[in-house]
Structure formats: structure tokens, C-alpha cells
Amino acid sequence: MQISCDINGKAYTRHIEPDLVLIDFLRDLGFLSLKQGCDTTNCGLCTVWVDGTPRLSCAMLAAGIQGRQITTIEGVEKEAAAFGQFLAAQGADQCGFCSPGFIMNVLAMERELTDPSDDQIKHYLAGNLCRCTGYAGQMRAITLYLGARKGELSCE
């Protein structure tokens, strides 16, 4: 079957198998930032935005994105780098395998919640597993980043 969609601001039309999974579709197109960490839809590594909403690309069919807008970290590289600097300043990017999905969800959270409390942040990001960092460094990075976005602090 044929689908057309928008990925990171560019139009794509492709022939696909009806059961092609979105993550495989996107990786095949060269969006290699996407990572798969599980077969049970509960690690968060494969997070992308579909029409601006964070979704798991391992649990969507490419067929289902007809006419929709997909955003991967490649499409928000500047923002990712801006937040990434805060992560790096904490040393909280360890193996980095969880980073693309995690960062996409952090940026989605930033758009969706205003002035979230620590608990709200943790709750929003609960579906992003990380086996390396123990999460505390990520939390410090997020707090400093959100503060900086409000003009309060720098990444140091």
C-alpha cells in the first residue's frame, strides 16, 4: 500500500507492507536515532511525536500515519542539543541508548506542562526507562534546564 506523511517537515510518499511497524519504517528511511529496547511497549526508547504528541513508534503501524506529522530527534536537533548540554553537564548521558526517546519525551513535556513539580516530571517521564543513570542526574538536568528556559539558571 502507499502512504504519504510528513517527517521532520519533509513530505514522504512510500510503498509499504500493511504490517510494517513505524520504527522500522523510520529507521529504514535513515532516522537511525530511533532505538528499540523492548518487545512489550514499555521502555520508551522508541518515542517519537505524532502530530506533536509523544507516542511509541514500536507500537504503531506505518500504515497508521497516513497524512500525519512525525517528528524524530533529527527534526528537533537544536532543541535536543540545548537540553542535551544540560544532561552532559551532569554526566547524565551514559550509554546514551535511551537518550533520543527520553529527550523527545522531555521536550514533549516541556510543551505540555507548565511549571511542573518534581512529582509531575517523574510521572510524565515514568515510561522512559534508563538502566545506567539511576535517573537522579537526569532530574538535575531537567530542573536546571527548565529553570534556564525561564531565565533563571545556566547549565553549570
Partner: peptide
Amino acid sequence: TAVPKVDAMALVTGKPVY
């Protein structure tokens, strides 16, 4: 000193390195 990791920016921007 707490310098950032040398590969940090590649990892946080999702570069194809694995």
C-alpha cells in the same frame, strides 16, 4: 574536574553510532 563526556553531543542528538 567534571568535564562533559567527549561523546556527549553525539549521544544526545541521536547520532547513528551503535
